[in-house]
Amino acid sequence: MTATAPPSPADYTLEALFIAGALGQLFCIHTFPSHAPPQGVILYAHPFGEEMNKSRRQVALQARSFAASGYAVLQCDLSGCGDSAGELTDAEVSRWLDDLQQARAWLAQRWGADQPCVLWGLRLGATLAVLASQCQSPAPRLLLWQPVLDGRQFLNQFLRVKLATDILSGAHERTTVAALWQQWQRGDTIEIGGYLLTARLADSIAALDLSQLTPAAPVIWLDVVAEDATDLTAPRLALVNQWQQQGGAVTAQVVTGPPFWAMQEIAECAALITRSCERLAG
């Protein structure tokens, strides 16, 4: 497959704005076609923690490509995240779903309520997008990039960063994932890599489980894999099969590239952009 050339800056327009959210103003970046009204709108849900920062470049490049091919894209920092109002300690999943609802309403007001809508999400943002699509009417199509299957497992991985910090610093008193969960059960707030996770936020993330949801609209699922992998990993494939058996129009594919949301150096995956544009148009 040939990589598409990046769009010319003349073909898209960038706008930074604030909309009302659950905890105050939400910072948004709106990227839309310069020369004609959009043929559809795309609302983006970002991942959690450092993954949000690491993926900014890839997401910005994708938003510009979408805009150049005729979509208006709204990237919204959720309450307590990025440049939006509120502290992470006040955030929880239900507030983020409200934020996405507000953002969808803003797009409808700006471009018309009859515009077809796609909810696009990365990692935990993709998980939120599936949930959000069930509360929005009409249900938007879903573009899922490397969705987090299980919120509890995701938090376990996050907690492991704390363990890894202990391991690397050679600390004698090491904590365990189980001990950290007990802290949450007592209602404590845990600091991991500069992020303060309250028990309420952790509970709301832990309750996210894609196998308990059935998407209400067609799903395009794209995973980024290593050069020698040809398909989704077994548990991810199992969920795709489950959704298909439940009658969902789900197509899942892989592209080869770096896990740009999790790397120390900022990386991009051009194949993912090309494939996403193709799949959305197809």
Binding site: Q157, R160, V161, A164, I167, A262, Q264
Partner: peptide, 21 residues
């Protein structure tokens, strides 16, 4: 550890998950 600048605490956690998977 100590030789690869990429191997910080985030990377160690990612590596554990990737190895398990």
């Amino acid at each position: 550890l100590g030789a690869l600048p990429e191997l910080d605490s985030l990377a160690v956690a990612s590596l554990i998950v990737a190895l398990e998977e």
